[in-house]
Design a binder for these strands. Structure first.
Lengths: 113, 113
DNA sequence: AGATTTATTCTACTTTGTAGTTTAAATTAT
DNA sequence: ATAATTTAAACTACAAAGTAGAATAAATCT
């Protein structure tokens, strides 16, 4: 089976969405921060990079090292962006989940009709 | 960390949704069939039961053996249903994903405004 | 040069996802 | 009554994804 046809894990989805959300400012620290802010998910930085690397190996994200900026200390940032096939994979995962939710209503939830 | 506070894997979500969707008729074979029909995901029966068992251990589903029916051969069915905490976990996962999608628009997709 | 800051890489382990084979319990045909 | 058939679950083993924590690197500042 082609890698492109596999589903993404949930954490992988979160990372892809974070990167898309952050645009030009997507790198380790900001991604981690966004996850903490938006969905209260605190992952260690190690967990993050491991998954990012796997996503890159599968071709779902691309990365490039940033220039050393003159305004601050610290190592260069590694910027990430979602590839076209990453977006496709994301879309597939979303659709599958939507389809599954379609005829399910949880107790205490409202029906949409 | 409490088990109830952890996120579900994506396949776990699919199983919970299948069970909810099937209502009184949720057991191994029908769940497998539903996954194949709805989202073209073909899992082996072994994969299915393994995950079902783990979900049960975590308290997200409950099971009971069905009566032997007089109308057909074959072993008794094991019926599954989603527990209250299973529903909660599902709701949390859905919300997290919704939040993450909120300010993301994929190429070629429509904005909702 | 040494301290500080910012950020990535490495290593190891746990949990989830997945397949394939085996076993079990019922009915049906001989 | 027993062997064949049907339906379905249990078991075993491995691959992939999720997670943590320490180590390392590359800048700037004093």
């Amino acid at each position: 089976m082609n890698a492109k046809e596999k589903y993404l894990g949930e954490f992988e989805q979160f990372l892809l969405l974070s990167i898309l959300s952050l645009g030009e400012e997507a790198y380790g620290t900001t991604i981690r921060q966004l996850l903490a802010d938006k969905i209260a998910r605190d992952v260690t930085i190690g967990a993050l990079y491991t998954t990012l690397e796997r996503l890159e190996k599968k071709g779902f994200v691309e990365s490039k090292m940033g220039e050393a900026t003159r305004e601050r200390g610290g190592r260069a940032k590694k910027y990430f962006k979602v590839s076209a096939s990453g977006e496709q994979a994301l879309k597939r995962s979303k659709q599958a989940l939507n389809t599954m939710w379609q005829d399910v209503t949880l107790r205490g939830e409202h029906c949409y009709e």
